[in-house]
Simulated assay, not measured.
Amino acid sequence: MIQKRQNRPRATEKMWLEAAHALLLEAGVEGVKIMPLAQRLGLTRTGFYHHFRDREALLDAIIARWEDKNTGNLVARCNAYAETICEAALNLQDCWINPDLFDASLDFAIRNWARTDPALAERLDRADARRKAAISGMFQRFGYPEEEAELRTLAILYTQVGYIAMEVREDPEERIAKIPAYVEIFTGRTPTAGEVQRFMNRNGY
């Protein structure tokens, strides 16, 4: 009796992109190559070309994913409805708590990659400018003068970049417990118990 070969699920563009994402985090951009990706997925390299023109197209897709997820979600959280600056700042803090909104490891990898890629460095500068404008706009929406809004924006961004660059490993419950104090430092206002509780609830605490 001839045994039927077990059908293997057909690889999708998303599968190749997820594997490339993982390799970027593990080995940097130099490690993102077609053959290692194919081996990781248990596929032939020819299958790659059904989804991407070449390696450069794959790398561009990784960058687009980073821009859409990290910068896009950060801007969206800054623009989310809030009645007070503390509530707005807590909306933004969701990005640092929820990895579905902001991928800190990917941000770190992109920043390292940009050190050797001038074109990516320009895209990174544009992304950082969008982030700064969104956070500053959030403060100005609640009446902060432009100069003060900019300084508070830098305090938020530099704190988070520091967390990422130093690869801080902090117990999630310990970090989230500090969030109200961070918000008070960043805004100069004390969040209410209700604002803090809503933040905790939507983040599963």
Rank of each mutant, 00 (worst) to 15 (best):
T46G: 12
G47E: 13
F48W: 01
F48Y: 02
Y49P: 03
H50L: 10
H50F: 07
H50M: 06
H50G: 07
H50P: 00
H51V: 00
H51Q: 01
H51A: 01
H51R: 00
H51P: 00
H51L: 01
F52C: 04
R53Y: 01
R53K: 15
R53Q: 10
R53E: 07
R55V: 08
R55F: 03
R55Q: 14
R55E: 12
E56I: 03
E56M: 08
A57T: 01
A57N: 01
L58H: 00
D60Q: 12
D60I: 01
D60G: 11
D60R: 07
D60K: 06
A61P: 00
A61M: 01
A61H: 02
A61C: 02
I62M: 13
I62S: 02
I63Q: 06
I63H: 03
I63R: 10
I63L: 14
A64T: 09
A64E: 12
A64W: 00
R65L: 06
W66C: 06
W66E: 02
E67I: 11
E67N: 04
D68T: 15
D68K: 15
K69R: 15
K69Q: 15
K69A: 04
K69T: 13
K69I: 10
N70C: 13
N70K: 10
T71F: 01
T71A: 05
G72W: 10
G72Y: 07
G72Q: 10
G72N: 11
N73V: 04
N73G: 05
N73W: 04
N73T: 03
L74Q: 11
L74C: 09
L74N: 08
L74G: 11
V75S: 05
V75P: 02
V75T: 11
V75R: 11
A76R: 15
A76Q: 15
A76G: 13
A76E: 15
A76F: 11
R77W: 05
C78F: 07
C78V: 08
C78G: 09
N79T: 05
N79K: 11
N79L: 11
A80Q: 12
A80Y: 01
Y81S: 15
Y81D: 15
A82P: 07
A82F: 07
A82M: 06
E83S: 12
E83Q: 10
E83H: 10
T84Q: 05
C86Q: 06
C86Y: 02
C86K: 04
C86W: 01
E87M: 08
E87P: 07
A88K: 02
A88N: 06
L90A: 09
L90W: 05
N91L: 11
L92D: 01
Q93E: 14
Q93L: 10
C95V: 10
C95S: 08
C95L: 06
W96F: 14
W96V: 14
W96H: 11
I97C: 12
I97F: 04
I97K: 06
N98S: 13
